[in-house]
Design a protein around this nucleic acid. Sequence first.
RNA 1: GGACAGCUGGCCGAGUGGUCGAAGGCGCACGCCUGGAACGCGUGUAAAGGGCAACCUUUCUAGGGUUCGAAUCCCUAGCUGUCCGCCA
Length: 414
Amino acid sequence: MIDLKLLQKDFDATAASLIRKNVDSELINSLKTLSETLKSTKLVYESAQAAQNERSRLFGQYKKEGKNTDELKVEVDAAKAQLVDLLEAQRMAEEALEAIAMRVPNLPDSDVPDGEDENDNIELRKVLTPPTFNFTPKEHWELAEQNGWIDFERGVKLAKSRFSVVSGMGARLERALINFMLDFNRERGFMEVSVPMLVNRRALEGTGQLPKFEDDLFKVDGEELFLIPTAEVPLTNLYADEILNATELPIKMTGYTSCFRKEAGSGGRDVRGMIRQHQFHKVELVSITRADQSDAIFEEMVACASDLLLALELPHRLVTLCTGDLGFGAARTIDLEVWLPGQNTYREISSVSNTRDFQARRAKIRYKEEGKNILAHTLNGSSLAVGRTMVAIMENFQQEDGSIIMPAVLQKYL
RNA sequence: GGACAGCUGGCCGAGUGGUCGAAGGCGCACGCCUGGAACGCGUGUAAAGGGCAACCUUUCUAGGGUUCGAAUCCCUAGCUGUCCGCCA
């Protein structure tokens, strides 16, 4: 959630910032109005309550002194009825504000480039040169089927479309990648954590998937539980509702989970192959930091993901997302896109975001510094999407006969 | 799933109707002590919102109720623990 005080104090700048993220200006106006209404409603209620508290105190005193309380009781009862109404007004103002505030995205950092969509993203740099082939490189689904690594049909039989089965060397590669990534991240100071893959509504509100994006999530029937779309949700919410000691920060974590997404809005995109599945594996990085640490940790996380690709000898590029492509909770994001020779293009394989205090405000993650409670900064990044990494390995290391050479760093994991 | 017990500050824990946002301890911060530390001693220390401030409001899991007044009494829900059942 954005800082509503900032919106009240510096409306023009905050509104301009939200407009950069395509938030409707009417919505911004109503957000401001509602937050001010709440403020004045509260003021009225609180002074009425203060008067009532005083009367109650007097009542006790009268009783003790043996005075008659009949007159006071009439007064108290009258005020009580009024208080009920005032409280109700306050509650309605709160609800109205929250309904909107929880659906307003984070403010982008001032240096995030303006833009409409992914076409306006800005390439930062390329790492490694794409390989050249003296034959026409195949796409991964062809290679996967030829090598017996992935069975798309049987995945559909077991569940539905966008599910697949990985077997043989493919399954071993998947496991090797997960282990390799976790070890790599651990060596960079990220503590390994294993978390639930089902979470409650509160957790998803904390990281921003709810209330706005419920359609993208798989929900467990009859329970208030959802399958996680990313390990970012449980890892970040690990510290929800807590006040950490400043000296404990930064907390740097890595975790492997399956991820589940309905891919509701993705239409007919990437229907073939394993680029876009309902269930996929991902190793995630999450950091909880002090406000002054998040920029440095952000760079660390980007470097970690990029170096991981480098270790796997996978050509990739780093891209700064423009305002229009930025996710709901992100103040800034760098995507890592891996080269896919079969598709002759770069495709997203990792996304590293700094949400600043946006998630922390929702999830109530604070730290104490010099006696004050300060909202933490939270960051997340994939490191990496396992399925897409397998796709990249297949396409980049394919031989003319369709066989695939494994990256050297994975040897000891296979 | 069944029975019983519990849920209080960063943590532990006292508190059965007003003097309680709450004893005490731990932790933390600062100071003294020390060559430097530990120990010891002293002081401070719940959160959220509003206000320049004094101060005000709210919060003892949540929601409802009783009462002039609820951490305290009643109801419901959630969670935790223990025992039983089931089980990888």
